[in-house]
Design a protein around this nucleic acid. Sequence first.
RNA 1: UGAGCUAUGGUGUAACGGUAGCACUACAGAUUUUGGUUCUGUCUGUCUAGGUUCGAAUCCUAGUAGCUCAACCA
Length: 557
Amino acid sequence: MADATNKEEKSLNFLEEIIEEHLNNGTYKSIVTRFPPEPNGYLHIGHASSICLNFGLTQKYPGYTNLRFDDTNPVTEETEYVESIKDDVRWLGFEWKYERYASDYFDTLYEYALKLIDKGLAYVDDSTSEEMAAMKGTPTEPGKDSPYRNRSVEENRDLFVRMKNGEFQDGARTLRAKIDMAHINMLMRDPILYRIKHAHHHRTGDIWCIYPMYDFAHGQSDSIEEVTHSICTMEFVPHRELYDWLIEKLEIYPSHQYEFARRNINYTVTSKRKLLQLVNENYVTGWDDPRMPTISGLRRRGYTPESIREFCDRIGVAKRDNMVDVGLLEFCVREHLNKIALRRMVVFDPIKVVITNYNGSGEVLQSENNPEDANAGLREIPFSREIYIERDDFMENPPKKYFRLAPGQMVRLKSAYIIKCEQVIKAADGSIVEIHCTYMPESKSGSDTSGINVKGTLHWVSAASALEVEVREYDRLFRVEYPTDEEGDFKDYINPGSLKVVKGYAEPALAAAKPEDRFQFLRKGYYCLDKDATDEKLIFNRTVTLKDGWAKEVKKG
RNA sequence: UGAGCUAUGGUGUAACGGUAGCACUACAGAUUUUGGUUCUGUCUGUCUAGGUUCGAAUCCUAGUAGCUCAACCA
């Protein structure tokens, strides 16, 4: 990014092309976009694309972006969601110009409805939802006019005011636009504008008992805010005709809608309904469960905002259907964490190594906090006669090209000495109790004069000073690539191994871990402290594993 | 069986009538006190059929395929 000047210009996505065109031909001097979540769930990785897009556009071009909550359905919306959404947008690194709510405009919207009635373009319909569905027609057959379609303006006005005043029960009447029941676009077949809901709204309380539908709130809110580019996903393409119709008939500021294809990611689900099920039915511990594709889940998992922004940037924006490989998300987080994570050593499945010719005590070694970052400094690691190494870093009968510890074989202990396996001590049942090694005193890391070259380097931890920690190893939540496309319930395809809780033996420096720290446990993966951790008990979440070339080698056989 | 949208390697995305490129993945190799990182190389693509043109991924026509549309959800 810093040397963008000497690179050829990055190609524009189709929205940037449209905007540059508008800016160049003077349609607009600056632009206004908005991010319009409905506060009925937590934001997920799919929303991140939309956030990066909308806010990114006004970082790149003159203008600003509003955060606007589409809160027109009080029965599903809650303040908790409003707060989480604001947190998540900020955490991702974006700040809005104005915080707005569709509910801020309820008075105006009501006036707009009256205006439509007065123009003879809206009517109150007494039909039940079943009757309306029956009259709606199908994509291939025209619908039928409602018997209430030709009420007088006066009657419509009277009825609508009474709807607002609470004289009718939920569902008793609706306000509909009077367009064309035979329209080829189903959304233009007299769409419902207002419905009656005697429900408590998270912001307007009990003032209203009629609420506008999406189509009579979204475009109008855009218009009120003078949004120039109202960007949404492809499923709203058919709505655009209605969007434009309402703005035209209302004679208000002409915002315009542009659509891009929602980003899909394999091995996960991103429908709010499904995510809500996972939470409510306790398949996960909450919206911020580290296995969830929510922003708060990814955050708790240890993803960085930078890595998520990078991911959104790499997958781009287009109009065609897509299925992004979750591996790219993992690549992005590894790429960032590699640069910033502090290196630490943790042994998960320990086997004791006794260094029989070592008689030192209190020796302290130094190791770099991050070989990618000289400014990260060094840390101290105690060394001793008894250490732990990973059980699978030792094999009695190793295959070819096994560079780890084996009888007679030598390895480097990271930032310490070279050791040689001399003897394997076993219990009566044949299981390995400990391994006896000798070390090469002149092979000390940083001042090695031994002249010995070893292929393998192991992480280790001094037995006496090892800290016992809990590690939560997360894997993808679903075991199939397209959970939604499978037979039956998507929940049947949850990966039973998506969470494994294991014990780890950590080097003492980890005692100072703070919530915002990111770690690479050497040769294992990237980890962060979980919010469940206490001073007595350190708990780490595995963000993502390191790439494992050896595992691949083994698999090949 | 109406209408709309979309079709470029395994995946995502460029090329705006003029050499199909980039990234991820995969594979091979080099470097490495993390079998990580880094570096080098390789494989794989324009949905089909016609047409326009000196020249088509790009423009036109017709097919085909996928997605979307019949919530008092957004």
